[in-house]
């Protein structure tokens, strides 16, 4: 089953949050949804989870028993210990007995939370709490796993561990969709959906997204048009839209190869210029 959404529209009152978004989440792959704040990433994931209802479009998701969600705040119960959190979620999904015992041990070991089993979730560090949230989301071996900004606010070491667990889960056949603002993480995903103000501006592999940029991106110490430039380290990267006249000159890229971050920013600038 190919989970995802087709022509999805969501409005909160008169405010459109998603406008005609398509997302395919194949089994055994990680699909990333990227975009700035308010782009509609969380809304899309919550539509897929069923906690937000779309105004139009189709959502394809499994039954609740086969769906896992990790909310942006980790989704752990602060006043329960690590073990108690796992026991509660296991009971909710009907996981018990030897299955629970072996699954609990396996996941706690994978998340390196063995020394924290009796600690309250509220006393864990941000990274440990997110790893516990991830364990809770995959405990019942869901077919579709939704992760809402799983690594936001997590230290670099925990991010690496979290991503290892995400990769292992997908390798096991789970369809994984995650939202993130970290483009280096998105670049590791099988496919990427770039959202800006609720609209899809590009989708596909990281290469597809980079190739989707119309115009050129250059590097300069001083930008020619400030509104189309962004700082990367000590230099500026600047997007130059394609000239309306083919005969017009195109800025020389100077051998520069834009990465996913450049592409996403350029795509957003292009959409916003087109909208105005």
């Amino acid at each position: 089953m190919n989970y995802g959404a087709t022509a999805l529209e969501v409005s909160f009152g008169s405010r459109p949050a998603l406008g005609g978004v398509d997302l395919s989440i194949p089994a055994g792959r990680v699909s990333a949804v990227v975009g700035g704040d308010g782009a509609g990433k969380s809304t899309l994931l919550h539509c897929l989870a069923g906690t937000v209802q779309p105004t139009r479009g189709e959502v394809r998701r499994p039954a609740k028993e086969l769906l896992g969600l990790m909310p942006s705040q980790s989704g752990t119960w602060a006043d329960l210990t690590v073990d108690e959190n796992i026991s509660f979620v296991a009971a909710a999904y009907g996981v018990g007995g030897r299955t629970l015992a072996s699954r609990r041990d396996e996941l706690i070991e994978r998340a390196d939370l063995g020394d924290a089993r009796d600690r309250l979730a509220g006393d864990l560090s941000g990274g440990m709490r997110h790893k516990l949230g991830f364990i809770l989301a995959i405990l019942h071996q869901p077919e579709l796993l939704l992760l809402d900004e799983p690594s936001t606010g997590v230290d670099p070491v925990s991010r690496v561990e979290l991503w290892r667990m995400v990769a292992e889960t997908a390798a096991g056949g789970t369809a994984v969709a995650l939202s993130t603002t970290y483009l280096d993480e998105a670049e590791r995903s099988s496919s990427i959906l770039v959202l800006d103000e609720g609209v899809a501006v590009a989708s596909g592999t990281a290469s597809d997204v980079i190739e989707a940029v119309a115009g050129t991106i250059t590097v300069a110490e001083r930008p020619t048009v400030a509104d189309r430039a962004w700082r990367r380290g000590r230099v500026f990267h600047e997007w130059h839209p394609p000239p309306p006249d083919r005969a017009a000159s195109v800025p020389d890229k100077g051998g520069f190869q834009p990465d996913l971050e450049d592409a996403v920013i350029a795509l957003m600038l292009a959409r916003r210029e087109a909208a105005t």
């Binding site: 089953m1 089994a27 055994g28 792959r29 990680v30 959502v59 394809r60 039954a63 077919e143 390798a171």
Partner: peptide, 20 residues
């Protein structure tokens, strides 16, 4: 809008590599 949920007894998906 339409929401489709697969039945619980759907065959599990084929494993594949997680990343591109």
């Amino acid at each position: 809008h339409a929401t489709s949920e697969t039945p619980d007894d759907d065959p599990p998906p084929e494993p594949a590599t997680p990343f591109a």
